[in-house]
Nucleic acid binder design. Sequence first.
DNA 1: AAAAATACCGAAACCGGTTTCGGCAATATC
DNA 2: GATATTGCCGAAACCGGTTTCGGTATTTTT
Lengths: 365, 365
Amino acid sequence: MKSIKSRTTIGDLAAFLGVTKSTVSRALNDYPDISETTRLRVRKAASAMSYRPLSHAQAIKTGRVRSIGLVLQVSEHDGHRPFLADFLAGITQAASEQDWTLTIATAANVDDAVRLLNKLSEERKADGFILPRTYVNDLRIKALREQLIPFVLYGRTADIAECSWFDIAGEDAMVDAVERLYNLGHRRIAFLPGGEGYNYSVLRHEGYKVGLEKVGIEYDDRLVGNNAVNQEQGRRAADLLLHSRVPPTAIICSVDLAALGAYEAIEHAGLAVGKDISIISYDGIPEGAIVTPSLSTFAVNTRHAGERLTDLLIRRIRGEAAQELRELAQADFLDRQSHGPRTRTSKELAQLLETKSNYREENDE
Amino acid sequence: MKSIKSRTTIGDLAAFLGVTKSTVSRALNDYPDISETTRLRVRKAASAMSYRPLSHAQAIKTGRVRSIGLVLQVSEHDGHRPFLADFLAGITQAASEQDWTLTIATAANVDDAVRLLNKLSEERKADGFILPRTYVNDLRIKALREQLIPFVLYGRTADIAECSWFDIAGEDAMVDAVERLYNLGHRRIAFLPGGEGYNYSVLRHEGYKVGLEKVGIEYDDRLVGNNAVNQEQGRRAADLLLHSRVPPTAIICSVDLAALGAYEAIEHAGLAVGKDISIISYDGIPEGAIVTPSLSTFAVNTRHAGERLTDLLIRRIRGEAAQELRELAQADFLDRQSHGPRTRTSKELAQLLETKSNYREENDE
DNA sequence: AAAAATACCGAAACCGGTTTCGGCAATATC
DNA sequence: GATATTGCCGAAACCGGTTTCGGTATTTTT
């Protein structure tokens, strides 16, 4: 497999045209000191001989490989997995428009991610990185900042100084969710936070609080469930809320998968999602469309996120100031069947649950 | 962003050690003509000064960038999307074990894919490619073969000469499915083919035929539905089968998403999946676990596929013969709730459907 | 018409590695 | 003891581009 076909080099092209390599290079790179006629002549010959410069040969002098890096953490909870294809499509499309490519690696955890980021940038497999799923306190950011490696965050973080980022305003979505439920008559609205340590989780929790304040409901710790990022955790967290003294008539979930878990808890309690208890969630995973009732949720346009992140990163690498490269977008509410008017008060729910629970204790295992 | 921190070059290292660059290079690359003592001395100094060679600087002489390429087609049907994360994890893990990376791009269609494959290999962004989702007649293969670019197929193809590949034996799964259904009493077993033009589709269809032959059922065109690769197509194809003169008591689907569509058709006809009509499918998408009844299907270990493909490709690039680099694995049957003993004959089903259909015509829209 | 500026391109250095070639010293062979 | 071999490493070429520097011919300025 050694003779991958002898490619035409810049030397071949120069020899054919009777000029020097430097002329060819400058002609192809639009240097101002090349006449229009020779520029065209070179261009034509280049495409005729199907010449294309080796990216790594260019990189050795320019220092740029024209590749953006992405390190995915696969072991963590999988809420965003369904979006991966869209995310990659967004990134690669935006990248290829500027003739860049995407280099990806997968890590098992944060330390591994930091290690890979360092390695990839030291070997110069990428000129900069997109950091998905930011933490409140993000070691990856620290590492890249120290090494002066360009990066852009998908999400925000506690210490945002000198960072460029793109994010969806999950906090606004949560405010909206509270208001919608309030307008449907709900007064006891619970909240299931997302993954601990993640910045989005803090923001959505904040949004929940702001929403309550806006509609004039006092924040109540007992209505905030445990962190839940997958179905099992969602089920357990919702179960606890349901069997508290004053159960909620609506639950806002930070993550769709947790909402699907809440479905289980509610159904297992003999109640109906969307009738007895309303649910509004966030993410927009495809499963939300096929479950019954379909899940009311705030959907994220992940492909668009990928596109914007890529554009921001390339501009960052080209030297624009990090402070100028920040964008915030909104999630789209999918108005489906898992939420509706309040049908019962919290007290009625509690009694109903008591009855059903006793019934179950007699007949269950 | 220009001063990405002045890295230590091989020259720095050589100067520090009082040897030449060539000695350093050979020491780090385990050349036999370097004494053990200097090899260790160089190694130690290298890690002390945290020296890491620039991959593109190496590439210029070696001709290898140590990167494998993957061009994804995102516009096509999404059956394999959920697996993408696993697939990438498998590839990148196997790649990083050998100190390689993954470069990916996304294409809108086959022609675009061919264009990207050519471009990526001409710019030498990748040393070889993994081609996912092979077609019976695959233009990508043709192009890469002509250019003598190393590649490995995920799947097989009509003209398999000089190709190395990894695949799951979907045909064996289909044989197994037929036998399982036959043993449960089913005699009219329908089949929904997958995407037209894809090689897996032909193989699974072939397997269906072989299965029928094994249990002694004659192949019947009328039991083969239209190609279906998503929910909507699955619904329509199943609907047609159900309302034929002699409806099947079981349906084998080439693709899970089509099976979910068949669920809709069956339920809409007033029948119960797993009781009135059995379904066995193929893929193992996560939705299959949450639908009711849960989907009996043959699951593919996509992560493992990624690992194997990567290993094969790297060996191919290093010069091993394509014929030696071929592997076939088996899918795992997930024995769930969507199939069971035959409860009705085809005739009974037909009558039942007739009744319900009349009833619906009166009450529906 | 002489001087200065401009347009254009060649020569050569350079980027950071790898690899070939050759030389010297130490060891092995006869 | 002379020669051949081996072990080890330096010198320099090389990979395929980019970029700096400088020079010539032409045009503009005075």
